[in-house]
């Protein structure tokens, strides 16, 4: 099963700590001082409506519409998750339109090449931009570790099984109440 981060709206307080942690975890070590409004592109987004506050991010679907929509096989299943091979991304945005959760975006970043000790500009490079579960980060997804109300959880097979077990138990108890 693909792993994914899930948000519990009954715990979220809309504080956006997850957004900053996400941007920092993908800043190549630039730290907070590298953050600026123009370049702030977290892969997790806090959404606030009249009645709901919660974070929205990639579900790492088992049969992912983004993977199926990509014409250049840039989106792949790897390490029990959906990952983007950025060098293959064309920036065509098929994946953006295919994702039912609004969790995929296409962003452009400055493209550069090193040549004889100089940095040469190659214009811009498109990137399909979404949650990568912070693969490679020892402590796991940064958003999950910082959420002050523990509204975010990393769901893997074990966590999912535990959730299912609790749900079934509750359903059984409710059924018993109805019968009684």
């Amino acid at each position: 099963m693909n792993r994914f981060v899930t948000a519990n709206p009954s715990k979220c307080i809309g504080c956006r700590t997850c957004e900053v942690a996400c941007a920092l975890a993908h800043s190549d070590g630039a730290g907070v001082e590298g953050l600026a409004p123009e370049t702030f592109k977290p892969r997790i987004r806090m959404v606030k409506t009249a009645n709901v506050s919660t974070a929205v991010m990639c579900h790492h679907c088992e049969d992912a519409p983004c993977v199926n929509a990509c014409p250049n096989n840039a989106i792949v299943y790897r390490q029990h998750s959906v990952q983007v091979e950025q060098e293959r991304c064309l920036g065509c945005k098929n994946c953006v339109l295919a994702c039912p959760f609004g969790a995929m975006d296409v962003v452009t970043v400055p493209a550069v090449r090193q040549f004889a000790g100089m940095t040469l500009s190659l214009g811009v490079k498109a990137q399909a931009h979404k949650c990568d579960l912070c693969v490679g980060r020892d402590a796991g997804p940064a958003c999950v570790s910082v959420c002050p109300t523990s509204a975010l959880t990393l769901m893997d097979r074990d966590a999912m099984d535990e959730t299912l077990r609790r749900r079934r138990e509750r359903a059984a108890l409710e059924a018993a109440e109805v019968a009684a």
Binding site: G14, C15, R16, V32, G34, A36, F40
Partner: peptide, 19 residues
């Protein structure tokens, strides 16, 4: 949530000022 008091401290923090 992101700013505090008169903002002399938080307004000089990149992350908080970004939000």
């Amino acid at each position: 949530v992101g700013h505090y008091s008169c903002r002399s401290m938080t307004g000089n923090c990149a992350a908080l000022q970004t939000l």
